[in-house]
Amino acid sequence: MADADHFDKLKQAIIDQDEDEVLEAVNAALADGIGAKTVIDQGLLPGLNVIGEQFEDEEIFLPELMQAALAFQAAMTILEPKIKEEGTAGEKKGVVVLGTVKGDLHSIGKNILKLLYETSGFEAHDLGIDVDLFSFINKAKEVDADIIAISALLTTTLVGQRDVIDALKDAGERDRYKVLVGGGATTREWAESIGADGWAATAYEAVTLSTSLVS
């Protein structure tokens, strides 16, 4: 099979959100001598791009996005050891630490964001919901993050976003990270008032903005 045919199969398997089909296509490509990084860059990531566009256009929804991400993650369990062997590890777009602020238990928007980050080539570290402000900062230090993305849905939890920024300033580390805020209770004006680096109305916008911030 020609390389281009392998790439088409890999891409389609991701678009179909079919884990078995993805694994079969990955193994077939590797067996034909295609490098692991090439499998990702020319097969799986183009499929994930289509998935991201379909999600943005409301042709598919969160369950399908999750299914595609799970299929991609399954493929990576095969590909990551190969990449190490090949010494072809590529650059990630960036490293993101994300979560919902202290006192806020809402997760769906943040879960969508995590999936879109992962399927767009970012390394995403999801701290979950009800996250202590120092957990954001400590994790960002630990993984040498580029971006801290903070969600808040409730008006009474908005201040948690400001607290993270203030704590970064107090620690003299504000310039080390880009801070993005979002969530149902937030507005662009709010983001500007607390000195965030960016605000996004949707998860897709957040990923687009993040890409521009780290490039």
């Binding site: 409301e58 929804f61 969160l62 369950p63 769906i108 969508i112």
Partner: peptide
């Protein structure tokens, strides 16, 4: 329930 979330369309 969220349109576009786990509930789908």
């Amino acid at each position: 329930p969220l349109f576009g979330g786990y509930a789908g369309g």
